[in-house]
């Protein structure tokens, strides 16, 4: 008898849910004025921004980004802009 049904889920199984479909807008990381402050990583509610301080090259995972725009709003040097998703 498989009593897990509806009760127990496997760790991290939510990764199968590509929430990128939520997004109307997505960020573009322009890599012009970036200082490598990492705020875009800190503030991303989904944890989809990656990159690093040294190279100052950041990007995001479009499979999961919901397009909230917090990264662009909070970027202290306006190096991220939001663009409409072509659907």
């Amino acid at each position: 008898m498989d009593f897990k049904v509806g009760i127990i889920a496997m760790p991290g199984a939510a990764l199968s849910n590509k929430t990128g479909s939520f997004a109307n807008e997505v960020p573009v990381f322009m890599h012009k004025t970036c200082t490598g402050c990492n705020l875009c990583i800190y503030f991303c509610p989904e944890g989809v921004v990656y990159g690093d301080k040294k190279t100052k090259i950041y990007d995001f995972d479009s499979d999961y980004c919901k397009g909230c725009g917090i990264c662009a709003e909070e970027c202290p040097v306006d190096d991220i802009k939001m663009v409409l998703v072509e659907k």
Binding site: L15, S16, N17, A23, P45, K66, C68, I70
Partner: peptide, 14 residues
């Protein structure tokens, strides 16, 4: 992990 169904911009998930 990502893939949850929280609202876009949810500060709780952050």
């Amino acid at each position: 992990t990502m893939g949850h169904t929280g609202c876009s911009g949810c500060a709780q998930s952050m």
